[in-house]
Design a binder for these strands. Sequence first.
DNA 1: CTGATGTAAGTTAACGATGACTAACGTACA
DNA 2: TGTACGTTAGTCATCGTTAACTTACATCAG
Lengths: 193, 193
Amino acid sequence: MQTQRQRELIEAAIHLTATEGIQKLTIRNVAAAIGVSEAAVYRHFESKHALLQAILEHLNTLLAPRFMLLLKQTDTPLAALKIFLDDLFSLLEHNAAFTLMLFAEETFNVDAELRPELMGLLEGNLSHLSSFYASIMEKGLCRTDLRPEQLALITFGTIRLTVSRWHLQKNENSLHAQLDALCNSLQTLFELQ
Amino acid sequence: MQTQRQRELIEAAIHLTATEGIQKLTIRNVAAAIGVSEAAVYRHFESKHALLQAILEHLNTLLAPRFMLLLKQTDTPLAALKIFLDDLFSLLEHNAAFTLMLFAEETFNVDAELRPELMGLLEGNLSHLSSFYASIMEKGLCRTDLRPEQLALITFGTIRLTVSRWHLQKNENSLHAQLDALCNSLQTLFELQ
DNA sequence: CTGATGTAAGTTAACGATGACTAACGTACA
DNA sequence: TGTACGTTAGTCATCGTTAACTTACATCAG
């Protein structure tokens, strides 16, 4: 169970990493962000590694419900994808913290011991998407000549590259401007032939 | 113009980064890799930043000809994509240095001053792929209901995620095993309807 | 109610490692 | 004789981490 202080530290760390990059995620900076001394951080996390683990766990709790939302929509599943992406891109645009969710394995590659957690996150995301495609295939709303895992890979890969690029452009263009094109492409490609 | 020593340093730095991660790319380690002292590095690059810039430039010279190869194939362009990916994945599998090419903007995000170079690399890759799709659209060998830029984004995004995942799995499965599925998916999706 | 005691959570001030970088000096060779 | 290229031995900043000490507060015996 997490204490209030631990949650504060995790959120500060996520904000720091999302806005300034992983190299700014130091105990010093996290401590300063919530206005305590460095040593105080160690009252709540026994090491930086433990803090990183807690961050990843927290990221997972942020992302998982979004996917659930995607899976629950049963009446118009292909529109649900649009809604899902709309929701996701809104979050990404207004809260830098959420961008970390999508790129956790890239960002936290710094700590080799974190590999299992990182794999778990990525595979989780992909398998949620796979389930989504599998279910709409069953309903006959999507082409079935490609495996759901492939559609998931294509979807997630394209989302990530779109967001990466948007970041690199210093958020010049609105992310939503590119969302329409992306949704349109995926729907056109994946609809029944 | 680059000297012999500069090229050695660049290659050592790339190898180091690709195998051990960006956090191990230190002047100390690069110096050790070619068997000289730290100070000696500064005889050839005035700062670490200059070394990073040189690395990016070198990466570009590695990747660009591969894309040229993709664009030159005129008789059977869709098979050329398979050949291109085959070549690329072979390189990735046998030489860690090449993985850096695909992920330069992720990896070198550490130095904020490098942003323009990183953007240039990514946009270059995407525009090569776009040209490829535009040209085979003209020849009537590819669906035209999606813009070439979108197909490029989907292709590159999926390639990157496939490779990212393969890395995370510690190269458990062969990359080529996933290549066939990937090629098949792209061809199925992009062929004339 | 009082006072002792334990604990949670903070502090300051260091530690050793390591980062990028530099000054001063040595040497081989055109 | 000067230039290219190397060395050793440092500078200074910052990293994760820890030791030693303080403070606030809850619990509980007398």
